[in-house]
Design a protein around this nucleic acid. Structure first.
Length: 201
DNA sequence: ACAAGGATCCTCT
DNA sequence: GAGGATCCTTGTT
């Protein structure tokens, strides 16, 4: 049973990033009156050459090295705030990037934060999700398993699951570029870069 | 103190 | 399909 009002417990996130990325499809993000259904994720597990943790601990990536179930938010290309969820064990350095969502509640607020746009263009891409939730660096490090602020709620898994390589990591090692660590719901058009995704298993 | 580059998005052609 | 926006983080001097 998965009810949308139930918080995901911290132990949900205390697994490998690849497992958590798959399991997060269909779960919900809530901030204030805005509720989003997660439709696309990417895993950045330990020892991943595409991860912000590849060069060790820094001031920016400190939350990724911390306990699971906390947010990691960073500024990408100088203008986009990208939201991640920390996974694995405290000290391992891993996270899941939230890439796309569907709107379940708060459509007016989301549209206002997204230039009045409508349809999948609203939320298909990680910078768009950050804008819709109005997150920034002040959220980085905050727990997501308690009420208030930004939180993660339960939700049913999708009917069909898609899998494929991650986006925008051409700088990484060949094996990590090819790794099938991106997951998406197969029952929606609210997913970015769909053409590199295939049915899971 | 400086230079390089990036887990992206939007507009225009 | 190409290019500009925009600025912080990081590694190097």
């Amino acid at each position: 049973m998965s009810r949308s009002t139930e918080l995901l417990p911290q132990r949900f996130f205390a697994r490998d990033a690849v497992v958590v990325a798959e399991q997060l499809i269909g779960k919900r993000l809530r901030r204030g009156r805005v509720v989003l259904r997660i439709t696309e994720t990417e895993a950045y597990p330990p020892a991943d050459s595409a991860s912000h943790c590849r060069a060790g601990r820094t001031r920016r990536n400190a939350p990724m090295w911390g306990p699971p179930g906390h947010a990691y938010v960073y500024l990408c290309y100088g203008l986009h705030q990208l939201l991640n969820v920390v996974t694995n064990r405290d000290g391992e350095g891993a996270a899941v990037l939230i890439r796309s969502c569907e709107i379940e509640a708060g459509a007016g607020t989301v549209r206002a934060r997204r230039r009045g746009l409508d349809g999948p263009v609203l939320l298909t891409g990680p910078g768009k999700v950050g804008a819709a939730l109005a997150v920034d660096g002040s959220v980085s490090g905050a727990p997501l398993y308690q009420r208030g602020g930004l939180s993660l709620l339960d939700g049913p898994p999708p009917d069909r699951l898609l899998v494929g390589p991650r986006v925008g990591i051409g700088f990484a090692d060949a094996g990590d570029i090819a790794a099938p660590w991106r997951f998406a719901a197969g029952d929606t058009r609210w997913v970015s870069v769909r053409h590199t995704l295939v049915p899971h298993r």
